[in-house]
């Protein structure tokens, strides 16, 4: 039970990262759209977005990768110890 709560909290925290990253992506796309609308050097905005958005996603991806990787093992261990 206790382990489950912790697990849910951990999942929540990892999803927070995703919310954060998605929010940033939305924000940057919003700014990009404004700059296109106002014809205010959209090229620069596009350039920045192309670099920034993937960076954030990769970072979140790495974190998730580790999270999943560790937990898979934990479950395995728990299973094997129960057996």
């Amino acid at each position: 039970m206790h382990a489950k709560t912790t697990y849910i909290a951990q999942v929540l925290s990892i999803s927070l990262i995703w919310i954060f990253v998605i929010a940033i992506a939305i924000w940057i796309i919003n700014l990009l759209l404004i700059s296109i609308e106002l014809k205010d050097v959209p090229g620069a905005s596009i350039g920045i977005s192309i670099i920034v958005i993937p960076v954030f996603f990769v970072l979140a991806g790495i974190l998730t990768y580790v999270f999943i990787g560790l937990h898979k093992e934990e479950k395995k261990i728990i299973k094997s110890s129960q057996e």
């Binding site: 580790v66 560790l70 093992e73 934990e74």
Partner: peptide
Amino acid sequence: FLSWGWQGTAHQVKVLNRAINILMVM
């Protein structure tokens, strides 16, 4: 909460090291 179920298994170490390697390059 913070340890993310770390047990020090070989797989875990491998996952972690891989992640660290990607990160440090980034």
